[in-house]
Design a protein around this nucleic acid. Structure first.
Length: 448
DNA sequence: GTTGAGCGTT
């Protein structure tokens, strides 16, 4: 039974009513459409006086005690952007050793500086004005660019933005963006560190059969550890990539043969894209990236890894949401994240490279209207059939239904635990599916 | 049918 739930940005402030779904849950995307950057809900429990968190799973917020009741909820935002607790993160703490104070502070400062951010997956028609309008929801923008082909003047489908303050950047990077009907990614450009971090957690799964869906693989491999992403190139090419949360899991599986759906698949390490397998060495000839890193060198998850199938850019999608087990039940909040984003955000927030203990995750919403105010409404040609399939689900072991997805990632206390997102895009499912991973047809032409 | 989309005229 759909109803309206009262949500305030902060306790004591005037609430806004947001609609729940027919099943009584509130889509995180619905919430974040009104409260950009929100990752969860909480309310004050009159019995204990403490704030109580609302369960989040697969992008859905569940009513406490089966009903929302007539109380006012408070939107939850990532700690890093909680202005009420400006010193809540470890990064804000002063170095203990006075001798190193200056150095450490400088180091931290560097870590927290804004950088240009690449926006991937833009609809061809999106303009710089569109981007500015959308991303200014996150903070002051110092730069907005949509890269275009110099000859035709047509957009290349990506652009760059830069925020004036770091908090805005972090906020922006911890979620996905629905722009003009497509899911877009915001990342640090050519971020090799992130890619490298991804690599040792990802395995190549060869000899896949075409009846193996991303969901099948995710489900199968979840018994070995948290599966963060599953990538199946489309059209069918008999292989897939599975990314685990824990690098030890992926490494332990390398070299093994597993039986999935009656077929023997071979698991090996995911090699760099431009690896010369014939000669067993990397391809060095990449003049285009002579400045040091090659974006194609290591996977960063790519669109496929992060894509979610946006059912339709409607405000309230009616996707079927899979169950989500495990960590996601903690519902600390959810962001639309992908592994690369997580790594980036984690690196930013932790001030160091490693993966620390983190918050938690959950995800999978079905709504396009996530984060900020979606601009535009429809994406003609967005529902392409040739998309690859990717299922991400950090901390979720349950199964995802096909056809819908979004990600939830909590940015809890000091770090992330991971993300999750799932996307199932079984071919043929979800009519009108568009969004991430769906290569958009170039206006009037072929992809290349 | 065993390696993934795309990274910036400065």
């Amino acid at each position: 039974m759909s109803q309206y739930i009262q949500v305030a940005e902060e306790e004591g402030e005037e609430p806004m009513e947001v609609p729940s779904e027919d099943d009584g849950t509130l889509l995180l995307s619905t919430l974040s459409a009104q409260f950009p950057g929100a990752c969860g809900l909480k309310y004050r429990n009159p019995d204990t006086g403490a704030m109580r968190g609302i369960r989040l799973s697969d992008g859905r917020l569940y009513p406490p005690d089966t009903e929302w009741a007539n109380r006012i909820y408070v939107a939850v935002f990532p700690k890093s952007e909680n202005k009420k607790k400006p010193h809540a993160t470890a990064l804000d703490q002063e170095p203990i050793n006075a001798d190193n104070a200056v150095i450490n502070r400088k180091k931290m400062y560097d870590k927290k500086r804004c950088s240009d951010l690449i926006v991937l997956g833009l609809p061809w028609k999106s303009t710089e004005e569109d981007l500015r309008k959308y991303f200014s929801n996150f903070g002051e923008l110092l730069m907005v660019q949509v890269k275009k082909d110099p000859k035709s003047g047509l957009s290349k489908g990506f652009g760059f933005i830069r925020f004036g303050d770091y908090e805005s950047q972090v906020k922006c990077m911890t979620q996905r963006h629905m722009i003009d009907g497509r899911w877009c990614d915001v990342r640090i450009p050519n971020s090799k560190e992130n890619a490298q971090q991804m690599m040792n957690r990802k395995v190549f799964v060869g000899r896949c059969t075409d009846d193996m869906t991303a969901e099948d693989l995710r489900h199968y491999f979840s018994k070995y550890g948290e599966v963060v992403d599953v990538f199946i190139p489309k059209p069918f090419r008999a292989f897939a990539f599975v990314t685990f949360a824990d690098p030890e899991v992926s490494q332990s599986l390398c070299g093994e043969d597993h039986i999935i759906k009656g077929a023997s698949v071979h698991i090996s390490s995911a090699a760099p894209k431009n690896y010369d397998r014939q000669n067993d060495k990397k391809v060095i000839n990449q003049p285009a990236y002579s400045h040091g890193y090659n974006p194609n060198h290591w996977s960063q998850g790519g669109r496929g890894a992060t894509q979610a199938i946006a059912t339709q850019p409607s405000p309230i999608p009616a996707g079927n949401i899979p169950n989500n087990l495990g960590l996601s039940n903690l519902s600390l909040g959810a962001f639309q994240l992908n592994p690369a984003m997580l790594a980036a955000a984690q690196a930013m927030l932790s001030g160091q490279g490693g993966w620390g203990p983190v918050g938690l995750v959950s995800q999978t919403g079905a709504t396009p209207a996530v984060g900020g105010t979606p601009i535009g409404t429809t994406q003609p040609g967005g529902g392409d059939s040739s998309s690859q399939t990717s299922v991400q689900s950090f901390g979720s072991i349950g199964s995802n239904s096909q056809g819908t997805a979004a990600t939830g990632v909590p940015v809890s206390a000091n770090s992330f635990l991971g993300w999750g997102s799932s996307q199932g895009s079984e071919p043929g499912s979800s009519p009108g599916v568009g969004g991430w991973g769906t290569p958009q047809s170039k206006p009037g032409g072929a992809w290349n």
